[in-house]
Design a protein around this nucleic acid. Structure first.
Lengths: 247, 247
DNA sequence: CTTTGTCTGATTGTCCGACAAACGCGCGAA
DNA sequence: TTCGCGCGTTTGTCGGACAATCAGACAAAG
């Protein structure tokens, strides 16, 4: 056995590229650099930090990946604020790698989605309704034409979440929704007769949200997701099996 | 007015470093590289992809940031599967930058946390209970000694989520929980008399979870969070103001 | 006056070569 | 067995270099 109580913390030296990215990140976090601001050119950053440009580049790659900076017009680096679009896919990927099951996913959706509908009924504005109506119309056309509406289905629920105007909910819900897409696709192929039922559910939910009827919106959404689970089981998929991605 | 309908999509070429990172990422996603596997050295990767080592480095930085690869013993790069610990902080940061309000956050927590408690009551095992009991004991000591127990408080709720054994829930909940920490700290400084009440709430929740009483677990948790909101208001904080980070 | 061609400077993407530090491993000594 | 010591390997960092691309200015053509 070693020393009874470690007298020293395991000191770690930060590589320069990490130190640089951390420094820039801090500057963004504490408001020193605001979204939209251009970042100094790589050469200049290298001079300021007293490191090589290659090191700066490695640092910038990290920030870029996090969505904290983006390459704008020209190629100048711009400070940005990360949104759903760069966070959700990574979270979704993590869930796939963790081999989560349908049950785990569904249980969470079963809580988030009805609540999203409820809040949407309270906070929706005219733009939200227009967007959702367009979505439902497109989905009706797709169902009639026998085309795949999986994208539209996912979009509808994303639209409901948007209408809630709760950014935390939007962010929390998105990965779950994305992960349902392949499953939704498989169910649809096995049970095409569910199409009209899904469309009708969306119509009911939208109507409730438009009428600001929170209870109805929540109830219809809950029913919609129970239906979804039933479809999953009827399609012969195992609720304890890891979900597939791009199956 | 320009052309009625743009005949060409804006074509974009992928930089080499991005192509490389995408290639490695695909290999991990489709199982060609399993978590724990070592990645070839940078030099070899450079030769295989026919690019310079600097380019490989920039690519690796991206994967590193995503948690898909980690520097293991030695410096060799290992394939890893991203967990809560590298995703939640980034999501939390995004929420801070978006300047979400307490209300937005609380509304989501108000849905997720009671559900977490409910599911914990159904799925908890002996280890979960032991962990939570240790946490409550530590918190009791901290309260008695007047020390700060904010970390322990956050840990308790994380422990409840862990006991649910639902990885989606764990992942979805974590960023919300992290974001509450600074707020929790401020409330505690203003309302130290709430300490015992919080401790008691945790005891009640833990007891319900241990007894597999899902209804009680959910109810107590809900009450706990309503209390939290009341504390927030009594502390004179504005529910519509953006939350601070490290206030 | 609007469109097009061209130049220039700035900046990024990529490459090359190089070196010190840190690490893993095996070998020999205590 | 354990400890310490080289040794090859791999990473972290550096310097310099060049082509491609972009913004902006400016002149030529319509």
């Amino acid at each position: 056995m070693a020393t009874a109580e470690a007298p020293f913390a395991p000191l770690r030296r930060m590589p320069a590229y990490k130190a640089v990215s951390a420094a820039i990140e801090r500057r963004i976090l504490d408001g020193g650099l605001r979204p939209g601001d251009p970042l100094p050119p790589e050469q200049q950053l290298a001079e300021q930090f007293r490191v090589n440009r290659s090191t700066v580049r490695e640092a910038v790659r990290q920030l870029e990946q996090e969505g904290l900076v983006v390459r704008g017009a020209g190629r100048r680096l711009l400070v940005a604020l990360p949104g759903v679009h760069d966070l959700a896919p990574r979270t979704t990927r993590a869930l796939v790698l963790q081999q989560v099951t349908f049950d785990e996913l569904w249980q969470v959706a079963m809580v988030l989605e009805p609540q999203a509908a409820r809040m949407a009924a309270g906070n929706r504005d005219a733009g939200d309704i227009a967007r959702l109506e367009a979505n439902v119309a497109a989905m009706a056309a797709a169902v009639k034409g026998g085309a795949s509406y999986t994208e539209l289905d996912v979009d509808f629920h994303a639209g409901i979440a948007l209408a809630s105007h709760n950014r935390v909910l939007i962010l929390a819900r998105e990965p779950v929704s994305l992960l349902f897409r392949p499953t939704l696709d498989r169910i649809r192929r096995v049970l095409p007769q569910a199409d009209r039922r899904n469309l009708e559910a969306h119509r009911k939910i939208l109507a409730a949200v438009a009428n600001q009827d929170a209870d109805a919106a929540e109830a219809w959404t809950r029913k919609h997701f129970v239906d979804f689970q039933r479809g999953f089981l009827m399609a012969g998929l195992g609720p304890d099996q890891p979900l597939h991605w791009e199956a």
